[in-house]
Amino acid sequence: MDNPTDLKYLATHEWVRIDTDVATVGVTDHAQDQLGEIVFAELPDVGDSFSQGDDMCNIESSKAVGEVHAPVSGEVIEVNETLEDEPEKINSEPYTGGYLLKIKMSNPNEVDSLLDAAAYQATLG
């Protein structure tokens, strides 16, 4: 699966879709492939705040725990509740139905520090 070019990325395999001051966050196709079948997503609560780079939540596959870092600072305004019953959506639709949460950004300038699709692809070697 190609990494969509309209998204921004972290080298730690998170993606972000920026819509004015709201960032939708998920994990990349590469990340879900490395973890294997996701069986549980431990998402934060709406209202939780994070700084860029914080451990924000965990997604767990049958064999491993993957830490998800906050790509930008801000407050969680929505979590993807469908993942509670269908965490496997992170595998099947990593860039769409398998998104994790939405953050209201407190510092939109942080977006400049994120990678574009080509730069992220380059980190995968």
Partner: peptide
């Protein structure tokens, strides 16, 4: 091999 098609 940890998996072929998938663990589950």
């Amino acid at each position: 091999p940890v998996k072929f098609e998938g663990v589950i």
